[in-house]
Simulated assay, not measured.
Amino acid sequence: MVPRVIFGKGSFDQLGEILLPKRRHAEAPFIFLVDDVFEGRELAERIPLLFNDRIIFVSADEEPKTDQVDALVEKVRDDYGELPSGIVGIGGGTLMDLAKAVSILLTNKGGASQYQGWDLVRQPSVYHVGIPTISGTGAEVSRTTVLLGPEKKLGINSDYTTFDQVVLDPDLTQGVSKEQWFYTGMDCYIHCIESLQGTYLNAFSQSYGEKALDLCKEVYLGDISTEESREKLMMASWHGGMSIAYSQVGVAHAMSYGLGFVLGVRHGIGNCLVFQHLEEFYPEGVATFKEMQKKHGIVMPKGVCSDLTDDQFHTMISVAMGMVPLWENALGRHWREVVTPDKLEGIYRKI
C-alpha cells in the first residue's frame, strides 16, 4: 500500500516541502516526468525545481511501452553520474505507469520487458511520487505498472512498484475533456464491477469496491457540482485501485489488453468498448454503464475491429487469454470451460 498520501484542493503546492527531506544532496536531482500537455502551462511553472532537477515532458497519446521506459532510464543514467533522489510522475495513468516503471528499472538490471509479470522485481526502486491529473485509472495506488512490450501487454506487478508518496489535488483535474473524463472514470467503475463480482473477493476488496462504486454512481448519475464531482471521482479512483489490490479485475480488462496490444487502443476506452458487450458476465453492471453513457451523451467508436486479419484476431485473443489471474477472478479455476477463442472472437467482432 502507498505509505503516504495527501488529499485536498491546492495540496500540489506542498510538493517542495514533501521532497526536501528526500533529497540526498545537491547533485542527486529529482526527475519530473510530466504529461506534455502541461508544457508551457501554469502547472509546469509550479513544479518546485531545485539544484539540477529536471522536467522531462512525455507524450501520453499512446500507451506506455517497455522500450519507452528503457529509453528514459538510459537518459537519466547517461545524464547523471548516480541515482536521482527520486522520480515524480505528473499526469494520467500513462505518466503514473512510466514513473513507477522508471523508478524500478533504475535499480534493477536489464530491460522493462523482463519484469512484465508477477513479483519478478528483486531490488527496491528509487523513491517515487505520483500526482494524478485525471481520475479513474487507480494507477496512483496500484502495485502494477501496465506496459506494452514486444510480445505482450502486461503489468510489472511488484511490491516495489507502489508509489512512496501520492498527492491527490482535485484542482489538477480541471480542463479534462468530457470524453476523457468519461472513459477514464469508467475504468474505475469497471474495476469495481469486476472486483465485486470476482471469485477473489474478500472483505478488504469489498469494502473499498463498494465505496468506489457508490462514488462513481454519484458522479455519473447524480446531480452534484463540478467541484464536488472532481473530488469524489478522485476518491473513487483511489478506492477502486485499493479494491483490486487484494483481488483482481476481470473479463473487460483481459480483453482490453488484447485491443491495446494489437491496435494501441487506450486503456480506458478499450475497457468501455469491451464492457458494453459483456451482459453475459456482468448484466447489471452493463445496464448501469449504458445508463451513464446515455446521460452524458457519449457515442463510442464503431467498427474498431472490422478490418482485422485472422492473424490479428489470433494475437488479440492470445494476449487476452494469457491474463490467467483475471480470468480466474472472473470465472474461477475452470474458466477455460466457459471462455474459448471463438467466444472472444465473437465479442471482438462486435466492437
Rank of each mutant, 00 (worst) to 15 (best):
C216A: 12
I347W: 08
W181L: 09
H25Y: 06
L201S: 02
K9N: 13
A71M: 06
D171M: 04
Q276E: 13
Q293W: 03
T94Y: 00
E179H: 08
G258N: 07
R4P: 00
E284D: 14
E227N: 11
M96I: 14
I47D: 10
G297M: 06
P84L: 04
G285I: 02
L105R: 06
T226D: 13
Y115V: 06
K65R: 15
S158D: 02
E62C: 09
E284C: 02
E63P: 07
D78L: 06
V76L: 03
G222V: 05
Q312K: 11
Y200R: 11
I190M: 11
P64E: 08
G92H: 06
F30I: 06
K343Y: 14
S195T: 15
E210K: 15
E63R: 10
F182S: 04
Q174W: 05
M96C: 14
N52W: 02
A139C: 12
I224N: 13
S85W: 06
E345H: 07
I131Q: 03
E179T: 11
V126L: 04
V5N: 06
M321V: 08
D311R: 14
Y115L: 01
W327Y: 14
D35I: 08
I317P: 02
V37F: 05
G155V: 02
D53I: 10
L168W: 10
E328L: 03
V286W: 05
G198K: 03
E63M: 13
K295S: 05
L98H: 09
I90F: 07
F32S: 04
I90P: 03
A252F: 01
K178Y: 00
A44F: 02
G10W: 01
H239N: 13
L95C: 12
L259V: 11
D164G: 08
E337H: 12
L233K: 07
E228K: 15
D223P: 03
A212L: 04
L33V: 08
Y282C: 09
E345A: 14
M96L: 13
E337F: 00
I56Y: 12
R24E: 10
Y160M: 08
V274S: 07
M300H: 04
I56R: 15
W335Y: 15
H314Y: 05
T145I: 00
S306A: 15
V339C: 05
F32T: 09
I131H: 07
F313M: 13
F7Y: 15
S85C: 04
D214E: 15
T107Q: 07
S11L: 03
K65A: 14
G303K: 09
V304E: 09
M323Q: 15
K295Y: 04
S113N: 08
F275A: 14
D223I: 05
L83E: 10
S243Q: 07
H191V: 12
V249H: 05
S243H: 02
K153Q: 05
I90K: 11
E27R: 12
H296L: 14
V141N: 04
G10P: 00
G110F: 09
D53R: 08
S237A: 15
D171E: 15
E151C: 04
D214V: 06
A245W: 01
I269W: 03
C305D: 07
G260M: 02
